[in-house]
Design a protein around this nucleic acid. Sequence first.
DNA 1: GTCGTACTGAAACGGTCGTTTCAGTATGGC
DNA 2: GCCATACTGAAACGACCGTTTCAGTACGAC
Lengths: 186, 186
Amino acid sequence: MTELDSPRKRELLAAAYRYVLGNGLADLSLRPLAREIGSSPRVLLFLFGSKEGLIRALLAQARKDELRYLTQLRDGPVRVTGRELWRWLAAPPHRALLVLWVEGYARSLLDDPGPWASFGRDTVNDWLGLLAERQLADGRITPEAEAERTLLLAVLRGALLDLLATGDVDRITAAVERHLRTLPSD
Amino acid sequence: MTELDSPRKRELLAAAYRYVLGNGLADLSLRPLAREIGSSPRVLLFLFGSKEGLIRALLAQARKDELRYLTQLRDGPVRVTGRELWRWLAAPPHRALLVLWVEGYARSLLDDPGPWASFGRDTVNDWLGLLAERQLADGRITPEAEAERTLLLAVLRGALLDLLATGDVDRITAAVERHLRTLPSD
DNA sequence: GTCGTACTGAAACGGTCGTTTCAGTATGGC
DNA sequence: GCCATACTGAAACGACCGTTTCAGTACGAC
């Protein structure tokens, strides 16, 4: 029952992840993927058990990428954290990851059970948890803190959706900034 | 080149739309769909030209559903409009439509060209346009109005994402309300 | 009655899918 | 040398896909 990774598995997962960032998960199929990353359907199934197992591994990787960034954020007041989060979300190199994120999120709303099942809820909790820590560090444990962080998360997610569809960085950044100014700064 | 609808086409589109609201668009396939709505792949292709044509018609229907609601909103200050929009988004009967909406949005970020292509951008503009009208009616044409409506849209969309994944109506409604209170009320 | 338009059924076509079968190779420990 | 472990290639399997072919039926117009 061990799910431990072999070196080859890690290597192919990384390559598949790169492929998926460019091509999306929706129409992923083993033969084209394998061809592109120098492998074969046979090997992918051997290493990941099934296509579903591979997708699970890919989504876990996406969530890990996201979490790795979140946990390395410097401490600071919520307003500053929010600003840094938005800078990260709006950075062009992260575009592909975030499109993949939206795709996983959308699928998770309908595919229950399945490899996508808890993806949406999980990322909501990841982010809310991070923001809650920041609020605690600020000494803010008022009952309004939950609404505050839920709202900030909504602003960031909603702005991200807008950005991914329209690309209007300036318009959307101004809107995010408008909200950040209502937050405690220290 | 006429795209005019025949009665039978309208009828089958309505049935297919009902089916898709329950089953999602991602794995839609003609045979199961046709079986469920009492038709056949042959007829669907005859009427819609191709599967892509059918999907286009379904997405147009979803956007029409949404717009029909938006345009029948009573006039009023932005704060009230925002509150009514959230009430609509959070209403359980609209859940299926909104999940479909997210699915279309996600696909539109990657499927260019294709039936999904402009879905995301279109709905952003639908909503921003509506909010701009409300602001004008309030006599607000300040340069900050654009940031205000972009922010309100982000709040609503982000809150919707949260709601669809977690179902925590109370927590999220409190967050939305928190933002609405910062808006002009008359 | 004949014609055009709208719709339909059954079956097949070529293709892709995830997965399996069977047969390997390469490597390192003993 | 031997054996287990890790990985791989080629080919096939059965299922399902969107689409096409061919052959209709129903019906109102004239």
